[in-house]
Simulated scan of single mutants.
Amino acid sequence: MTSAAPELDGYRHLYSGKVRDLYAPVGADGQPLEDRLLLVASDRLSAFDHVLRTPIPDKGRVLTQLSLWWFEQLEDLVPHHVLASDGPEIPASVAGRAVLVRRLEMVPVECVARAYLTGGGLREYVETGTVSGVRLPEGLVDGDRLPEPVFTPSSKAPAGQHDEPIDEAQVDALVGEPMRRLLSSLTTRILARGNEIATERGVIIADTKVEFGLAPGSDPADPQVVLADEVLTPDSSRFWPVEGWEPGHTQPSYDKEFVREWLLDPATGWDRHSGEAPPPMPEAIALRTRAKYVEAYERLTGRTFS
């Protein structure tokens, strides 16, 4: 079973999401500071809006270290929220999987971009010829590369509910047209830059989800948009090996699609539409998932994960 968020000296626990725990530093007066947060990545894994009962060993460290690497590769495109990833600000018990970050006003849109057609985007395309209202060329099949990355946002659903695709008009209603255009540009440029780097290292990034926030005190006429949370990881993106890419069927992957496929296998006895929690993950599946995450990290960064 997944464990509760740990107590950390000098920090007050604020919130636990599906896979991350948020803390606020406590000041000398014993009150939480309002300008920064400690973001701790757990080893929990979510699939189909369920947090699985079996953690993935080292997942929090892999995703944190990979995000930090990507923040460096992208910082000329968009500033990020990280203030510190080591040193005295980071409690020893969560070192390697925690970052001290700026507290932001989060944008109420899930910013998704697709460079290849698969998953939910493919299902919508088969029915309508579009993804989030974006008309795509005819005749595309699973795994096809799109002419250019497209912005296909979704809603930020309350806990326990599903995110749903939304179109340009719905994003405009949430954040306004100028902000929607900026989010679209940043998200697609992040995915394009990611693929420029990743494909040379043997990895295709089929699609990705990123989170943005606004820096406190931003001028509404010229807001400072900041990249937050994680970026271009196996939890937020689909990673495919370049050498295995072949449109027309499901691609092999380095991401949690492997776990989704295991869950959907009739042998598990689980029905994703039943409302029941998924079964515990066998140790062999958890370890293979860890291996996929580590391989993605090592291929992309050129570093050995230890």
Rank of each mutant, 00 (worst) to 15 (best):
E200I: 09
D229Q: 10
G160F: 04
D29T: 06
A157G: 07
I190D: 01
A228F: 07
P57V: 00
D172V: 15
L100Y: 07
S42T: 14
D35H: 14
R44V: 03
V51F: 04
F258M: 09
F48E: 05
T233G: 08
H80Q: 13
S16M: 08
G302I: 14
V225P: 02
R238M: 08
Y116K: 09
S132K: 00
P223W: 12
K59A: 02
E105L: 15
V19F: 03
R53D: 08
V109S: 01
G133A: 12
L122Q: 03
V82R: 01
T233N: 07
T208D: 03
T289D: 03
V226E: 00
R288I: 01
F151C: 04
H249K: 14
L22M: 14
H13M: 13
I205L: 14
E124M: 04
T152K: 02
H80T: 13
M106W: 06
A95V: 08
A47M: 06
P57G: 02
A198M: 10
L214F: 12
G176D: 12
L117M: 12
G30D: 05
V225Y: 01
S218E: 07
D35A: 11
V225G: 05
E72F: 04
Q251Y: 04
G269A: 13
L39N: 02
G133K: 05
H13Q: 12
A277V: 09
S93L: 13
P247A: 12
D219F: 08
V294T: 02
H80G: 14
I285L: 11
V99P: 03
V99G: 03
A92T: 11
R114K: 10
V126K: 12
E105W: 11
P25T: 12
S16Q: 15
P153I: 02
T118E: 09
W70A: 04
V259L: 13
A41K: 00
E230F: 08
L263K: 06
E196F: 09
D167K: 05
E177D: 13
R260L: 11
E257P: 00
A41M: 06
G269W: 09
Q65R: 14
V99Q: 06
P57T: 00
L174S: 09
D172M: 11
T54P: 04
Q73G: 10
I204M: 10
E168Q: 11
L263A: 11
I190K: 04
P223R: 14
E7Y: 10
R290H: 12
H80L: 15
E110T: 11
